[in-house]
């Protein structure tokens, strides 16, 4: 197969950046999207040009490192699929493919297609955990957990932190990411004691980091590779509302 690939090139935060067009031929339908970029990069290197920088690590859809906006869609055309798991057989021979980085103010471009997603870590640091120090845990079977709760918690815990939800949201909101963590921990008895403070603190950190507000647009869940449901956002809103009504303050800094 043969493609015209228009790739965002930007040398750093100072540079304005631009789309640059490359022809990539001899592409096998069995290649992953990132392998297609590998091929492009090998050729650029041999031509003495700088290869295209893009993030990736596990290449099996679990680390959340990869993430490209392909033809305007975060992670590309195939639903529930990370960029690294997207294969060229999803495209038609001869296609022009536009590849851009995630775009959001809290995700500044580092280089080309690489962005800094540290803001997501900040949100977790604000309360996305259970405060249990090593060694203080009770016997695992001391607290049974209804299977439905465990399954639901797992579903939300499956978030890989890729940031596609932010990239797709017209408001640049990270609500789906944040809600997934709040829902995961809130569903389990282990996470219950900190449920109120967690919701308020994580929302505050989310806003603080510069993410936009959620207006329930639903673009996020459409591109989420792990199918985190929109219901998590409703759950999160409920938790926030309840915590505010109860007058729970955030955790003292």
């Amino acid at each position: 197969m043969r493609f015209t690939v228009r790739v965002w090139r930007q040398t750093g935060s100072e540079d304005a950046g631009r789309l640059v067009e490359y022809d990539v031929d001899d592409v096998s339908p069995d290649m992953s999207f990132l392998e297609m970029l590998d091929v492009l990069n090998e050729r650029l290197t041999l031509r003495g040009e700088e290869p295209v920088a893009f993030d990736h690590d596990c290449r099996e859809g679990i680390c959340g490192m990869c993430g490209l906006t392909i033809n305007g869609v975060a992670h590309g055309p195939r639903r529930a699929t990370t960029t690294c798991q997207l294969h060229m057989r999803e495209f038609t021979d001869g296609d022009t493919i536009v590849v851009e980085p995630w775009r959001a103010a809290p995700f500044p471009v580092v280089r080309d297609l690489v962005v800094d997603r540290g803001a997501l870590d900040e949100v977790v640091r604000a309360g996305g955990y259970v405060s249990v120090s090593t060694g203080s845990a009770p016997e695992a079977h001391a607290t049974p957990v209804a299977r439905a709760d465990a399954d639901k918690a797992f579903e939300s815990a499956a978030c890989i932190g890729c940031g596609a939800c932010v990239a797709a949201c017209p408001n640049g909101s990270a609500m789906l990411f944040t809600a997934a963590k709040v829902t995961h921990l809130g569903r389990l008895p282990q996470g219950a004691p900190e449920r109120d403070t967690r919701a308020l603190d994580m929302l505050a950190a989310h806003d603080e980091a510069g993410f936009g507000g959620c207006t329930n647009t639903g673009e996020c869940t459409a591109v989420c590779p792990k199918g985190i449901p929109l219901a998590d956002i409703a759950q999160f809103n409920q938790d926030v509302l309840r915590a505010s009504l109860r007058g729970a303050g955030g955790r003292p800094a």
Binding site: N71, G72, V98, N171, G172, G210, V223
Partner: peptide, 20 residues
């Protein structure tokens, strides 16, 4: 305004609507 601050530069390839 928050949305605009959170997405100062848009996509070159206009994203098709995925949600509603």
């Amino acid at each position: 305004r928050r949305a605009r601050a959170a997405r100062p530069s848009g996509y070159r390839h206009r994203p098709p609507v995925q949600g509603g």
